[in-house]
């Protein structure tokens, strides 16, 4: 996909009209993720239910359209999922932007699969993965 097409088809919508860019009340997990080289930042907030599913969640932050839109799409995907399912999706996403994902993995990413073309934009990989990296780190810290 060309870059302008990527923005037109998907990034702009999620960046300018995000579904999940807001505060979550009384979140169980909160973590700030930053891209020091770009100044992108997001704060990811999640609420877990009794079975450990992600019952609710949101993000706030500021940064480039790709980082913000990717975080919005990530929340679309992970709401209602267990920690294991969410982390599997994070792996799929990381593989996709490194061009090592198989078709099944890409399919699992639904709309976020549109960001596959970021794999040809090495300078933007960090932006696209900011939300996912923050998610991973959040669960790691919870374990630790």
């Amino acid at each position: 996909m060309e870059i302008k097409e990527l923005y037109r088809e998907i990034v702009n919508e999620h960046n300018l009209y995000p579904s999940h860019k807001k505060e979550t009340e009384a979140p169980d997990l909160v973590l700030k993720g930053v891209n020091p080289s770009c100044g992108d930042d997001i704060v990811l907030m999640l609420k877990l239910d009794a079975e450990g599913r992600i019952a609710d969640g949101s993000y706030t932050g500021s940064g480039c359209a790709i980082s913000q839109a990717s975080a919005d799409m990530m929340l679309d995907l992970i709401l209602g999922k267990t920690k294991e399912e969410a982390l599997k999706l994070a792996d799929d996403f990381m593989d996709m932007v490194r061009s090592t994902a198989d078709p099944e993995q890409i399919e699992a990413l639904e709309e976020a699969a549109a960001l596959e073309s970021v794999s040809h934009m090495p300078a933007r990989v960090k932006c696209a993965t900011l939300g996912w990296r923050t998610l991973r780190e959040m669960f790691e810290q919870k374990e630790g």
Binding site: E2, I3, K4, Y7, L16, S37, C38, G39, G63, C64, A65, I66, M121, A123, R124, C127
Partner: peptide, 30 residues
């Protein structure tokens, strides 16, 4: 307005225009 410099740079790149975007190694100035 409304456009992050990195997005500006990526889109201009597709137009064949190379510009810099970011903090330019001058964060206190930013």
């Amino acid at each position: 307005e409304g456009c992050h410099p990195h997005d500006i740079s990526s889109v201009l790149d597709e137009e064949g225009i190379a510009i810099r975007a970011g903090h330019h190694c001058a964060q206190p100035l930013m």
